[in-house]
Nucleic acid binder design. Structure first.
Length: 514
RNA sequence: GGCGCCGUAGCCAAGUGGCUAAGGCAGCGGAUUGCAAAUCCGCCAUCGUGGGUUCGACUCCCACCGGCGCCUCCA
């Protein structure tokens, strides 16, 4: 896997054999989470699934930053308390994670629950001479850390830059706050340096140590956190512990708002327009952040299934930026239908739902023996090879598409829809189990889409449709195609698609053509 | 200004110093279908531009053009 620290791919060797400690920098809970906040969790959820599949025991920690300048500002704006705001936004975050099927986080520590721990950490740094107190603040002295800047490839000198005018409390401009003195009316905790609150970077150092130990395996986050956040975490932890913090630093690419016009990276039409018409949404590609006002993720879920988001995220390599927007989402949704059509095809033939299949873990199975003339096995091996190579989910998903084609072909060639055959059916089931095994590692297709489930109020519709289809089938049998076509056309207008298949007529709701 | 990333078909997106440059969406042709839909088969790129290294580069190096990120809060 790729390590930001060494800037190359490395063999994955854990601190403790068989166990992986993984820490992901979570959100500052001051606003509803947007799509950008979901990328990390989806990616690392997949990483965890795959590592577990591969035989590791994984402890995954995601922190919640519930004390911070932005929280103070936002709660003041809303006329609420910081704690309440944090609680509300944390709930929002958790709900979104749940929707996306990210359920594998083991611990979610909050900064405010670790204040003592944080104070102890800062004290340790002060005692060792890496930090100094200054008028109620405590700063980390970057000049004491000879390694400072190695993650982000910067030097202390290069950062002395403009400096700024309000840094008189700091010894040098690059020093960063470990502890911030409280101003009037701000939330505060008592400390050896007076009332105040933790700086931004310190919580991750303190909490990762508390839960995962001084040294753990994977530390992740968005590419935008490399500097200064992660750089500073390393400085704090390694200065205090005298050794290495995380072995592997994994950084995911950021979400970019895809331009509504033209190609990203080329001359988009928008750029040739007069400036007046060139506003935020017409820009080619920009990072989604608070400045561009990304919509809350919850709103997005009103239009798109979580599965679609997951597919979109995983069809790009995790270190690359993801072009995000209605169009890419619609495309992912359409692409996904191929899988779901296969699932329902399988269900019609076997009577079993793909969603309840339980695949066995054959990670270390005897691949060679199974390989003989078995294309499904070949694809499985290809999939695993891709995932083994720095979690290449894009290639993984590509082989899954190949897999779908393979299975469809198998059904076609054996005419399974025309005449059933126990032999063919059991082969089919075997293949579906392999597909289940692989999609499990990506966290895909875990639950049946709600749209296909028929709820109580849908019962009537369902009965009615049965009747309509029955009548239409009779006209078809009587070669009265005019009537049959009329029914189908009218149903299409009502948003219902009719399919005459070898094994009977099906109807379904038309997918939104986004 | 400093550090870094990217530029592959109409669109999205993998990948490799030399074997057919994945996969998806869209499109086209065919099989199948009463006609459709779905499915299957086939077609659709020489890899931003210009140099260099090499027996050989899309893949390595340099320059240029274009896009993006970080350097302040950000997943």
């Amino acid at each position: 896997m790729y390590n930001t620290l060494s800037k190359r791919k490395e063999e994955f060797v854990t601190v403790q054999p068989g166990h992986v400690g993984m820490y992901l920098c979570g959100p500052t809970v001051y606003k509803p989470s947007h799509i950008g906040h979901m990328v990390g969790p989806v990616i690392f959820d997949t990483v965890k699934r795959y590592l577990e599949y591969s035989g590791w025991k994984v402890t995954w920690v995601v922190n919640i930053t519930d004390v911070d300048d932005k929280l103070i500002a936002e709660s003041a704006l809303r006329g609420t308390t910081m704690a309440k705001l944090a609680e509300e936004m944390t709930a929002d975050y958790l709900a979104n994670l749940a929707a996306l099927g990210v359920r594998s986080i083991d611990k979610m520590p909050k900064a405010t629950e670790h204040i003592d721990n944080i104070i102890g950490f800062v004290q340790g740094l002060v005692e060792k001479g890496f930090a100094y107190a200054s008028e109620g603040d405590v700063y980390f002295d970057v000049t004491k850390d000879s390694d400072y800047g190695r993650l982000s490839n910067r030097s202390v000198e290069s950062m002395q830059g403009e400096g700024g005018s309000t840094v008189d409390r700091k010894r040098s401009a690059a020093d960063f706050a470990l502890w911030k003195k409280a101003k009037q009316g701000e939330p505060m905790w008592e400390s050896p340096w007076g009332p105040g609150r933790p700086g931004w970077h310190i919580e991750c150092s303190a909490m990762s140590r508390a839960i995962l130990g001084e040294q753990f395996d994977i530390h992740g986050g968005g590419l935008d956190l490399v500097f200064p956040h992660h750089e500073n975490e390393i400085a704090q932890s390694e200065s205090l512990h005298g050794c290495c913090m995380a072995r592997y630093w994994m950084h995911n690419g950021l979400m970019q708002a895809a331009g509504t016009t033209g190609k990203v990276g080329g001359r988009s039409a928008a750029q040739s327009l007069p400036e007046a018409t060139l506003d935020a949404q017409a820009q080619a590609a920009t990072k989604i952040s608070k400045s561009t006002g990304a919509e809350p993720f919850k709103k997005l879920l009103e239009r798109h299934r979580p599965e679609t988001v997951r597919v979109l995220v995983l069809s790009t390599h995790y270190r690359s930026p993801i072009h995000f927007g209605e169009e890419p989402l619609g495309e992912s949704a359409r692409a996904m239908e191929a899988f779901e059509r296969l699932f329902s095809r399988y269900e019609r033939l076997s009577g079993k739902s793909f969603y309840v299949l339980t695949a066995k873990n054959r990670r270390d199975g005897d691949a060679a023996a199974n390989l003989a003339g078995n294309e499904a096995e070949l694809l499985r091996v290809k999939f695993l090879a891709a995932m083994d190579d720095d979690f290449n989910t894009a290639v993984g998903i590509a082989t899954l598409f190949d897999f779908v084609r393979l299975v469809n072909k198998y059904i076609d060639q054996h005419g399974l829809e025309k005449k059933s055959s126990a032999d063919v059916l059991s082969q089919l089931s075997e293949m579906m189990l392999v597909l289940r095994e692989l999609t499990d590692t990506l966290g895909l297709f875990l639950t049946e889409p709600i749209a296909t489930r028929i709820g109580a109020d849908e019962k009537t519709v369902s009965k009615l449709m049965e009747l309509v289809i029955e009548i239409r089938s009779r006209s078809r049998a009587a070669k009265d195609f005019a009537t049959a076509d009329l029914v189908r056309t009218k149903l299409a207008e009502a948003g219902i698609v009719v399919e005459d298949r070898a094994d009977g007529t099906l109807w379904s709701r038309k997918k939104e053509a986004t």
